[in-house]
Design a protein around this nucleic acid. Structure first.
Lengths: 333, 333
DNA sequence: CTGAAAGCGCTAACAT
DNA sequence: ATGTTAGCGCTTTCAG
């Protein structure tokens, strides 16, 4: 493995010039720049990230912290972030909190602190004050994605607005008994999606009730069970279900089928996410774009890391979009 | 951020001793070791990974390369690897090849080469000769997971054996017309799972036929479509479906339902993986344990990195296990 | 068992 | 525009 010295020798310049030529910093004449570049290429020179990091204090590496692996949303965020980072020559190191309290502590107390990362992206994290403290101690830019983090800049869509749009779609179809599947009604703080659901009903002059809110695991089986409960009683049955995520919504569709109900003739179902399986199930939903959110988080961090102008890129509200498929239809009467 | 010098000063020893005490290398008296440790603790000292890496040539970081993000299997492998690495003080940096040819090239030609990683884990990768070359050029230990890589040590289960056990379960239930959903029959090289399927049929004296093999995308919709084709013709209908993955198998179950068929009364379905959703769908399957595979890959690498004895840990065949749920039953007749 | 000192490979003043 | 020269923060001979 050739080092910068070999390149310098071949190009007949000093190592400093090699460094400048290869990093595009400082002034180097076109001629020498070319000479250096071809020397580097010829030798198959690759910079030692560590040496460079030690000298500059920048690692070209960002840490991504996630609650656990395997949820579609997280994967998509990571994929978006990863690709945005790659473009900029950055690595992504992954910190998965899914392994229990000890691993979690370990990540915050040891791993993140080793000056390995120039910045961190916290995906859908709910952190203790201590943990936020550790994060801030790093002294590097931090951005949250998908979940508002107290005291940290967060990229994400407006949960309440998404939920409202979803429910307004249902209301527009004539539904008046609309159930909510998702977080507990009295969870503190209440989730944005539940708030949006309630707001939509209230604005439409519809009654909300505890009976219409069913708490569920944020998974397909969770949605299935919740919908089973909700749809069991033919008399009091809601005509539409709003699920706070597509996975739950898909579970709800399956539950309706198993109860012999037709979707959307007997009951409409809408979710949030536009999960990869939603199209297959014909699920109407509010698409959010997690890969874009990951990408956006990176852009924000890069702006902090390499301020390019006086005006920092404002963190725009992220887009979402109603996608109408076949799981929602006019209210039966 | 205190450095090693501050710790040395507080403990009234040299930086060399601090280094030795904290790394457990070389001889340090119990007394000073304790002194150093409490000094380090008191100052909240965390080693600079970069400086250490530069000095030792070891980064305590392993690269994990995956074809793309978001498949259950990959996530599980990564989670297993991540947790095993964490225990050993290693970081995991993720290289996602899912972003198109350019990103892929970039990963192999630039990113992996920066001496950032002490080892690499290649998850389910199909690599060109060039890419394998780049990997080998790194001069670091490499291990594949889940897909045999020419010239590289690979951790994984025996695909053919898994498929055989699955099909033998079906055969044991009396099924004689068993279809295969998965890879193309004439793909080169043929997949282990297809081979295992054929072997099981042949061993049982059952005929195999092109009509029973349906190529499918390795996804839920892929399995759905394949099963639709297979089950469409009531006369020639197979009584059992073997899908090469649970996602396809779940799609097949859904297809059967939509055709008005009962599973398993009219048709049995079995998959491979024990996907997180399989239990919900009552899918019989062959469980493999991806997290264990990730963990195993790490153990193998650590053994190469820190040879502890003369005998390298042999790479044992990885376990798998038939899980019988409700999607398989006796052959109707 | 401990300390002094020479790097690891690169970058960033500071000179020229 | 380019070269010289200190480091970046740690590890590791080599002495003592």
């Amino acid at each position: 493995m050739p080092g910068i010295t070999e390149v310098a020798a071949l190009a007949k310049v000093s190592t400093a010039t090699v460094s400048r030529a290869l990093n595009g910093k400082g002034h180097v004449s076109e001629a020498t720049r070319r000479r250096v570049q071809s020397a580097a290429y010829e030798l198959g020179y690759v910079i030692s990230a560590n040496a460079s990091a030690l000298a500059t204090g920048r690692t070209k590496n960002v840490g991504v912290v996630i609650p656990f692996l395997g949820r579609w949303f997280f994967s998509a965020v990571i994929a978006g972030a990863e690709s945005a980072l790659l473009e900029r020559g950055y690595d992504l190191t992954l910190y998965n909190l899914g392994g229990g309290r000890d691993e979690r502590r370990s990540v915050f107390e040891h791993f993140l602190l080793r000056k390995r990362v120039d910045a961190v992206i916290a995906v859908c994290l709910q952190l203790s004050a201590d943990e936020v403290g550790h994060l801030l101690d790093l002294g590097v830019p931090i951005v949250g994605v998908g979940a508002p983090l107290p005291g940290l800049r967060t990229v994400g869509v407006d949960d309440a607005a998404m939920a409202r749009v979803a429910c307004e779609h249902l209301i527009g179809l004539g539904h008046r008994r609309i159930a909510h599947i998702g977080a507990e009604r009295d969870s503190a703080p209440p989730t944005g999606r539940l708030l949006g659901y309630e707001a939509a009903l209230v604005l439409a002059g519809l009654p909300t009730s505890a009976a219409l809110c069913t708490a569920a695991d944020p998974t397909l089986p969770g949605g299935y069970r919740a919908a089973q409960t909700l749809l069991a009683d033919a008399r009091a049955r809601p005509t539409a279900l709003f699920a706070a995520s597509d996975e739950m919504a898909i579970g709800a569709i399956l539950a309706a089928h198993d109860l012999g109900l037709d979707v959307p003739r007997d009951v409409s179902v809408i979710g949030i996410d536009d999960h990869e399986l939603s199209a297959f199930f014909g699920l109407s939903t509010i698409a959010q774009f997690p890969a874009e959110q990951g990408r956006r988080a990176v852009e924000y961090l890069m702006d902090e890391l390499h301020p390019r102008g006086l005006v920092p890129v404002p963190v725009l509200p992220l887009r979402f979009e109603l996608v109408v498929r076949t799981s929602t239809g006019a209210c039966p009467d």
